[in-house]
Amino acid sequence: MRKKGFNMDRASFFIITLPALLLYSFFYIYSVILGFYYSMTDWDGLARSFNFIGLDNFKKLLGNKAFFSSVTITFRYALLMVVFTIVLGVLLAVSLNSVKRFKTFFKSVFFFPAMISSVAIALIWDQVFIRALPALGNMFGVENIASPLGNKQTALYAVLFVNMWQSLAMPTVIFIAGLQSIPDELYESALIDGASMFDQFRFVTLPYLVPTITVNAILTLKSGITSFDYAKALTNGGPARSTMLVGIKIYIDAFGETPKFSIANAESVMLFVVIAVLSIVQISISSRSGVNNT
């Protein structure tokens, strides 16, 4: 009886996983393999036939200045995003956690942006930059406040700001969760030792947040490196390439007016390598700090 049940269980386990395996292989892995394959061809996306050209696309890309400037911009964007997310996220989490009155209200307002689609946010901020900033300037008697999206120096920061406006909510929630896992006794004993508030933050709160910080940092870094929707809707890579993130470049190369589909795929493969390396780093870090992590 028991043995029969056991076999039955094994069968049920297997059957449960089967649709997942099939769907995933058929609709995902197959496409990924095709994508990798296209990166080694000269298919522009239009032609009915194409050739296998090995690693030529990668060689071309490595010698291409436009691609390199995109990579530089992307890394700057992603790193800034990580720094701001960590600093603002921790600050916000600590603040929200210590507020006494209207706590729910504050939390729900700060979490609200996570509910809206990136497209809607980009469209709304685009309008705010164009319409509200000059109007605001007029109100305070400052003439000619220019949209930050129209300036090479500020466009990337403006895009980053809009991106952060939405994406800060999730890391903050994770930080709050991290804060709540800190045992109270530690604060009490710190207090008895006469620690100042900053010391308390520095020696009690921060060390306990380290695992959460690493998780958030890596997640943010990844989303920063692959980011493209905000810049696509706000600036489309301009002005003068100053916001041409790799994500947008891939999109334009793949689906733009003159498609170079295989090149776009080679760019994605390079992105894949970067993300894979980052993820391996993440896994090794989080397994090391796993002691604190649950």
Binding site: N151, P239, A240, R241, E257, T258
Partner: peptide, 18 residues
């Protein structure tokens, strides 16, 4: 090709900026 024109556009936009 439109590739050439769109690359040129970016440069001209840069000129207007600086």
């Amino acid at each position: 090709t439109t590739q050439v024109t769109s690359e040129i556009y970016q440069v001209v936009q840069g000129l207007l900026l600086d």
